[in-house]
Amino acid sequence: MSKYLLDKFLFTVDRDPELVERYRADAAGTVTWWEQEYANKLLNCTSDERSTWLAFTDEERRALREYDHVALFELGAHPFLTLTLFIAMFERDHGPLEYQKAYGRAMAHLHPPYPDIAT
């Protein structure tokens, strides 16, 4: 499991409106494509610099493909990253603050100590 990789996915997708729409329209395809093209690119480096070992686990892929923010949090993804990305994707389908309240309700069963979200 790589909390870093989960957070990197959420962060990079959220920062690009075209990737937000791509992920909304085709989560499975976007996760597969992103993992192949971007998972091993180093942030803030030239395109020639890459690592070779980063990959999602099956559980991480499933959570990303199903937009399962509770599972992502339980896997160590930072909740602010899932919240901001999912607001960008789903808030338009709801009234004011409805999505944020539903997000919170889905997490209500979780109690301290929370999963470690440090990377």
Rank of each mutant, 00 (worst) to 15 (best):
N44G: 11
E59A: 12
A25P: 03
G95H: 05
A88R: 03
H109R: 13
A27L: 02
L72G: 02
F73H: 00
W53E: 13
A27C: 05
E49A: 14
R92K: 14
Y67M: 11
E35R: 08
H109C: 10
T46S: 15
E98S: 12
R61V: 02
A88H: 02
R105M: 09
T30M: 09
T52M: 03
R92L: 14
A63Y: 01
P115H: 06
A77H: 01
T32S: 10
D48Y: 07
A63G: 07
E35W: 04
G104F: 05
L110N: 01
F86Y: 00
A108V: 05
L97P: 02
P113M: 06
D58Y: 04
A39M: 01
W34P: 00
Y23K: 06
L110I: 10
M107G: 04
E66R: 15
G29K: 06
G95W: 05
R61H: 04
R105F: 05
A108K: 13
G76I: 08
A71N: 03
R61T: 07
L72Q: 00
L85Y: 02
G76L: 00
R24D: 01
A102R: 15
E74L: 13
F73R: 00
R50L: 09
A28I: 10
L72P: 02
H78D: 15
E98N: 06
L75K: 07
A39F: 00
L42T: 11
F56M: 07
D68P: 01
R50M: 05
H69V: 05
W34H: 03
C45N: 13
M89A: 07
D26G: 10
Y67V: 10
T57Y: 02
A25K: 14
W34N: 03
P96T: 12
D116R: 08
Y38M: 15
V70D: 01
T84M: 11
Y99I: 05
A39G: 15
C45H: 12
R65W: 08
F90D: 05
D68H: 04
L110D: 04
T52E: 12
E98A: 13
L54N: 13
W33S: 08
F56Y: 03
A25Q: 07
R65C: 15
G104L: 08
A63R: 01
R61S: 08
A55G: 08
V31P: 01
C45V: 15
